[in-house]
Design a protein around this nucleic acid. Structure first.
Lengths: 141, 141
DNA sequence: ATTCGTGCAAAGGGTTTGCACTATT
DNA sequence: AATAGTGCAAACCCTTTGCACGAAT
């Protein structure tokens, strides 16, 4: 199946790209290059530039989505076209997926008001997760 | 007035910090360090690290907000506490400010669902502005 | 006088790129 | 055989940091 994705994206089907795609497909959330490297390393060693290049090729083909998060790292995920956002703990980085996106309506309004053809958006929530709240000294809350 | 901000933030009132603050206050939108350097250079030369350090000190005091955008640059703006988002043209980077934030309601729901204490969010819209739409060859639309 | 801000140059982290080599088609 | 992918090391961009000097309290 990943073969099909690569074929229709006009990319050669290499073991490494197939592996990267399968990792992204199995992931419940967007991953960084380091995370992908960590996961794939159990299977094959590959250079970070290989991962970057494979991902960027897939991004160009619109198979994968690329988003820069507030932690300074770029996250990659399969473009499922069913669009989700996340809520990240600013202390431990634990992440929860939000599966409703309330922004489509707003986008239509924005188009009407600004004339922009809106092609996407990026939304991240920040907060402190229940665990970190519990382990936090009183005075810092 | 900027003196007051600095004083109440427990920061020494230097010409450079006062200048940086006045630039941020005059700006209609969040600025990068380069933009701030460009503007302030008409007045005083200052090292980029000075700007970074001044801004980060103000961020620590919650006077200034810091956000990493999808272009890989960090944007700074006065924390007006009246919270806004932007719509950025992916071609020419022209930016429109959106002054309604529809997310506070959503945040409350998220808190109930996840137990996270939500401390903020980051939202950027992307699109193509009317000018760029006009100058665009048909086939690329 | 003390404390903190600043300039400079160097380092840092994440990402990209040039080149020679290897694999896929 | 031709084309595209990969590893390696170096370069890149933006941001941060150490240190010596200078300015604000």
């Amino acid at each position: 199946m990943n073969n099909k994705i690569l074929k229709s994206a006009d990319l050669k089907q290499t073991k490494k790209r197939i592996l990267i795609l399968s990792v992204l497909e199995a992931a419940p959330t967007a991953l960084t290059v380091d995370e992908i490297a960590e996961i794939t390393s159990k299977d094959t060693k590959m250079n970070l530039s290989t991962i970057y290049r494979a991902l960027n090729a897939l991004v160009d083909k619109n198979v994968v989505l690329k988003t820069l998060h507030q932690d300074g790292k770029t996250y990659f995920e399969i473009n499922s076209h069913t669009h989700k956002h996340s809520l990240v703990c600013t202390i431990c980085n634990k992440k929860v997926i939000i599966d409703t996106c309330p922004l489509e309506v707003l986008e239509q309004n924005l188009t009407n008001q600004t004339g922009y053809a809106i092609t996407g958006h990026n939304l991240e929530f920040f907060g402190i997760c229940p665990d970190c709240l519990n382990h936090m000294p009183e005075k810092t809350i």
